[in-house]
Simulated assay, not measured.
Amino acid sequence: MQVTIDGVTYVSHEAPVWRDEKSLMAMLDLAPFDLQGMREQLWLRQVGVEGNYEVCCIPFYAYGLALGDVVQKNESGNIDRLIRKSGRRALRILFAEPRPLSDSRSALRRAVHIAGLLSEWNGDRHVAIDVPNLSAMQPIFDCVQGEIQGGTAFWEWSDAREFNSP
């Protein structure tokens, strides 16, 4: 979900895949990723050393982060440092408007479910998929290949750029 308040767009995760009763939220300024005026609200849980938190959602916009990565927050409650990578990746797909007759979103949802992968949707056009192992990804790519070639879907890896804080 996205909401704009006083010129700042906040992106939230309505159903974080690892949400539990001990989760908390922190903001991440997306300006270092060329998304000025945007903040992503990530779900975290404390792990190990005081001040270390594990990412419990699949980032929609933040680069260099994935489910299970360990981060630190600053005094303001904002994520400012990546401590340790989890070894997972996130594949993000954006479906453009107008939608073609051969809309692949339902097929993608089925393929993600059959492959046993975790995913989060931001609305009905933007999905982030947890990728613990690349070997399970071919059916996912096959579902959206036609739309990618036709220019009605676009994809990227969240680790296409390194994590960077303001």
Rank of each mutant, 00 (worst) to 15 (best):
V3Y: 07
D6Q: 14
D6F: 13
G7N: 10
H13N: 00
E14S: 01
E14D: 10
P16I: 07
P16R: 04
V17A: 01
W18F: 09
S23Q: 07
S23D: 02
D29L: 07
D29S: 03
L30V: 09
D34V: 08
Q36G: 14
G37I: 13
M38R: 14
M38T: 07
Q41N: 11
L42T: 00
L42Y: 01
L44M: 03
R45S: 10
V49P: 06
G51D: 07
N52F: 03
Y53V: 02
E54R: 09
C56Y: 13
C56P: 00
F60I: 00
A62H: 01
Y63K: 01
L67F: 01
L67H: 04
L67S: 01
V71T: 02
V71M: 01
E75C: 06
S76Y: 06
S76K: 13
G77L: 08
L82M: 11
I83V: 15
R84L: 10
K85W: 05
K85S: 13
S86V: 06
L91E: 11
I93R: 06
L94Y: 12
E97T: 02
E97D: 09
E97G: 01
R99D: 11
R99L: 09
R99N: 13
L101K: 10
L101D: 14
S102L: 14
D103E: 06
S104W: 07
R105L: 13
L108M: 06
R110D: 11
A111N: 04
V112W: 06
V112A: 00
V112T: 01
A115W: 02
G116C: 09
L117Q: 04
S119E: 10
N122F: 06
N122P: 03
G123V: 13
H126K: 12
V127R: 05
V127M: 07
I129D: 13
I129T: 14
D130Y: 05
D130R: 06
V131T: 04
V131W: 10
N133C: 13
L134K: 15
A136K: 15
M137D: 08
F141M: 12
D142R: 13
C143S: 11
I148D: 04
I148L: 09
I148H: 03
G150R: 15
G150L: 14
G151E: 05
G151N: 05
G151P: 08
T152A: 12
T152R: 15
A153E: 11
F154E: 11
F154G: 08
F154T: 12
N164L: 15
N164T: 10
S165I: 00
P166H: 05
